[in-house]
Each structure stands twice: as C-alpha cells, then as structure tokens.
C-alpha cells in the first residue's frame, strides 16, 4: 500500500516527503462504513425473523383472523389484535392532528416573529420538554391531566357536541382521547424543534426578495417558507409519528387498558405497545406469549408500512416541487 502511494507521487514536486508518509485509509474506511451499515440491516432482519419465529404458534392457530378478531381471552386461549391495532392507529392519529399544526405555528413564531431572546428562551424550553422521560408524562397524565379531563374537558365536549358518538360515555378522564393528547404533548417538542431548524435553513435572500416585492409576513410564510421547507416538515412529522406509535409507558398509564374497540374517544382502549408492556411478564402459556410476539410483529410491519408511505410521499413532493420550478 505504501509502495503504491509512493509511486503515485511525482518526485519532482516539493513536499514529496510528506506525501510518502501518507497512508491510504480509504479501503479501511469504506470497509468500516459498509460493515456498520450491514450490521444495521442484519439487526433489522434478525428482529423480523425472530418475531416471525416467535409468532408461529399463534400464526398457525389463528391465521388472518388474528388481525380482525376483538377477542383477548387468556383463559380460553383466544386472541385477536383488532383492538390493539385500532387503539394504536387512533391514538396516534389524535396525537398527529393536535401536534402537527401546533408545532408548525410554534416553529413559525420562533423563526419569523419572536424577538431573538424570546426565541432562544422558548426554543430551550422546547428542547427541555423533549428530554422528559415518558414515564413522567404518564404519571402527570394520570394524576393531573386525567382529573382535569374528567372534570372540565370531557363534560364540555359532550355538551358542545350534543352527545355525539365520539364524545359520549362516562367522563372518566382516562381513555383514548387523554392518551392521544398526552402523546401529542410528547411529540410536539420533536416536531417543533426539527421544523424550526428547517425554517431557519430557508435562505434569507429568498424571503427578503418576497418582502421586497411587497409581500406580507403571512404571504411570505405561506408561499415561501412553508413550501421551501415542506420536505423537512414531512420528515419532522414522521419522526413524531414514529415516537407516538411505539410509545409505551405514558399510554399504559392513561389509556385504561381495555381489549375492546369502542367508537367513543372517552372509552378505555389499548395500543399494541401498552398491551405488550402489561401482559408480557405473566404470559406463561405458549399461545399467549406467541400472540403477544405476533402483536410485536404487527407493530413492526405497521411501522415499516408507514416508513414506506413516508418515503413515497417525500419522493412525490420532491417531484412536484421539481416540476413547479
């Protein structure tokens, strides 16, 4: 190796001595990066295979019925994932519907409107929120937020909506809606912080040009900042989504843990992650354990599908933007 690098150097050029001592690290570096990348792929493949292997007994017993059955009966050994899948999707959807617009508004405020000192203060607070462990959110949710929901928010919603099916039932404070809102609070800092960085990367020249043409702040935001950062915003949203869909402890505390699909958002529900957290330790029968592992497999595939959708969407927006320019 040293030999070849010596040959490559022209001896007539000054500074040859230094060049001779240089080693070519490229092959080693490439080897390192490739193997690290492969390790990651191998880990993902390994997890998938292991989940599949663990869920074989349940796959054999229930087949596709597992996905559409609401049963969850450890006594008779009859298991279905429907309520867990439904709860995972709905609680995540609530979180996204609440957190995404709020995060966008906060990020815009921080970048476009807030004085620098306020911006750095609020920005720091948001990063602090992101660092709080999820169990703290769970306990706060159970002891502070749930009673507040039960006493004020839920009766209010029920009254305003006129007993609409989504907002009906006993206002217990815990349940799907509370879990979704806690999740929203948990993913808000992530989405906000990434979105803020995205907005900061919009070149000042572009914005200033728009202002120069007589645009108002609202117009610059709507027509320049947001379109420019749309890819980054999408990325931020999926980061939040990823966290919401797999969140365990906080959800387990406030969702009410019930294996039943109920249209009312006040009702107790469960998610895949909360079911696993609750029942894994004491599942001693093979079929029970296997059904829990199959739930894990479902979550794995669900996350994978969402990733695919995200990538497809990103590509589409990229193409659209390319066509627009």
């Amino acid at each position: 190796m040293a030999n070849s690098s010596r040959q490559a150097v022209d001896p007539s050029v000054p500074g040859t001595k230094i060049e001779v001592k240089r080693r070519n690290f490229d092959p080693a570096f490439r080897w390192l990066t490739v193997s690290c990348g492969l390790l990651l792929l191998l880990a993902v493949a390994g997890i998938f295979v292991e989940l599949l292997r663990g869920s074989l007994p349940s796959l054999e017993k229930f087949g596709a019925r597992f996905l559409v059955s609401q049963a969850w009966n450890p006594v008779t050994g009859d298991f279905g994932a429907l309520s867990s899948i439904y709860g995972t999707l709905v609680s995540t959807a609530i979180a996204m519907v609440v957190a995404v617009p709020l995060s966008l508004i906060i990020a815009l405020f921080l970048v476009e409107l807030a004085p620098p000192r306020v911006s750095s203060l609020v920005g720091g607070a948001i990063e602090l929120l992101a660092a709080i462990p999820s169990i703290i959110y769970g306990m706060w949710g159970l002891f502070v937020f749930a009673p507040f929901m039960a006493d004020y928010v839920q009766p209010f919603l029920e009254r305003v909506s006129g007993g609409f099916i989504l907002f009906s039932g006993a206002p217990m404070g815990i349940g799907m809606l509370t879990a979704g809102l806690i999740l929203a609070l948990m993913i808000l800092p992530f989405i906000t912080s990434v979105t803020r960085d995205v907005f900061l990367m919009v070149p000042a020249v572009v914005k200033e040009s728009a202002y120069g043409l007589g645009s108002t702040t609202w117009e610059v935001t709507r027509k320049v900042t947001i379109p420019y950062g749309s890819q980054g915003i999408l990325g931020a949203c999926f980061l939040g989504l990823g966290r919401a869909i797999g969140e365990t402890m906080a959800v387990t505390f406030v969702i009410g843990n019930r294996h039943e699909v109920s249209l009312s958002l006040f009702a107790a529900a469960n998610t895949i992650a909360s079911t696993l957290a609750n029942e894994f330790t004491e599942a001693s029968e093979e079929l029970y354990l296997s059904s829990l592992i199959e739930l894990g497999l479902v979550l794995f595939l669900l996350t994978f599908l969402i990733q695919l959708a995200a990538q497809y969407w990103l590509k589409r927006t990229r193409r659209k933007m390319g066509a627009g320019q």
Binding site: P74, V75, N257
Partner: peptide
C-alpha cells in the same frame, strides 16, 4: 392471571 374482563378499565 389475566382474563377477558366483561366491563371496566384496567390499571397497571
């Protein structure tokens, strides 16, 4: 150790 509860909510 775990059953299919006909009614109610579950705490951990």
């Amino acid at each position: 150790k775990a059953v299919q509860w006909p009614a109610g909510v579950g705490g951990k």
